[in-house]
Design a protein around this nucleic acid. Structure first.
Lengths: 211, 211
DNA sequence: CGGGTTATTGACGTTCCAGTACAGAATTGA
DNA sequence: TCAATTCTGTACTGGAACGTCAATAACCCG
């Protein structure tokens, strides 16, 4: 039975906004390289509030990582969604666009899951499954797009969509690294095009797109 | 003119051994995540000796990174060296072997340069060029192997070797990430084979290697 | 308008870390 | 054996970082 309950002071911040800011900060300076003061400055919350609302650095990190997955995967899904007929074009656009976008933003390059696969890897038992599921989710989304391209007759029906997904996601995560290392845009652009050309495209597709 | 010079106490450690141990520790726990005590324990040297011999954490990191490049690039060169006739096989072995090896060692997976491209990226002005040169060196070595395969008629002469190098290195660096994220071996193995098949191999090569 | 409840703040303390200084040990030449 | 020189390890210092706490502010309901 709920008797009358006194209402208390409401939060003055939007949780999602804070998570976005924290995510950004972690991506910029890494996990170990980010201090609570950095997070406090990035989010605008005091140290105490951060602690009261998110119970510390590590839980906040996990929530930021989850936020990334919850935003990134649907965004990728939207990008790859569409009619089967143009699925192969979206696949191509994804590959080439990854090579570009990773070079455009001055900061915040690349996939957060990939970044922390490197930094915390399997040493963080809580973060590891989130990272793994995020990359696996990316792979499945690309695989679904490859299947669509198979239905439209642009990719060989004998090819395994998940293999294509694994190839494309591995490659784009590699682009992230190369871009952060300062490898020039033309190199990655050419590699992306070469990789697309190397997919098991049907002769029907190739003939239609040859000079 | 050298007058008589008193000989002093010699070092009790091998510098290269210490650098190897430090490199290992940095790869395991990252730059920010590694403390001087970690390095002291890993190398067996006291903090004072570490400081006297390597002038601190960051210079030691740079030397460890350089050590990695100095060991890794010649090793890759040796792996890819050989007669032109088998160059394409070595390329294939490199791709597939990268997917495997990265999954074999329980720890110390993947390329150190790729790892720190993510962690320090361009924020470390001293480390950035070392990282970039290491990855660029890898790309050039693969490109040289691709050129050899062109000479032997296994890769299309119209293909750009550096593009193939960029593709292969991006992909293998992506494998590093996927492996650290816990993606299973079969997925990466299949992706590596798919990627090799997608290289601009000549029909002569394909006919010779078809069932 | 006052009380009860919850958010916020900023300072505090404990721990930890990078770098330093100093004292002792080891080695070689005289 | 002694002196000179350099290595080695421990103890110290200043500072930073994580997490906490108590006081204050904000809000809603009666």
């Amino acid at each position: 039975m709920a008797y009358t309950v006194q209402m208390a002071r409401p939060r003055s911040f939007d949780e999602q906004t804070v998570l976005d800011a924290a995510m950004r900060q972690f991506r910029l300076t890494g996990y170990a390289g980010t201090t609570l003061d950095d997070l406090s400055a990035a989010t605008g919350l005091g140290r105490g509030s951060l602690y009261a609302s998110f119970s510390g650095k590590h839980p906040l990190f996990l929530r930021a990582l989850t936020t990334y997955a919850e935003q990134g995967l649907p965004a990728l899904e939207r990008f790859l969604a569409g009619p089967d007929e143009s699925a192969v074009d979206r696949l191509r656009e994804f590959l080439v666009g990854s090579a570009h976008s990773v070079l455009d933003d001055a900061e915040l390059k690349g996939c957060m899951a990939g970044q922390f696969a490197h930094e915390v890897g399997a040493r963080d038992a809580k973060a590891a499954p989130i990272i793994r599921d995020t990359l696996l989710g990316q792979q499945c989304l690309v695989a679904a797009c490859a299947e669509a391209a198979q239905r439209s007759g642009d990719i060989e029906p004998s090819a395994d969509p998940m293999t294509i997904g694994g190839l494309v996601i591995s490659l784009t995560r590699g682009f992230d690294i190369m871009a952060k290392a300062g490898i020039d845009r033309d190199t990655l652009d050419a590699a992306a095009h070469q990789a697309f050309t190397g997919l098991p495209l049907t002769s029907r597709y190739r003939e239609r797109h040859s000079p």
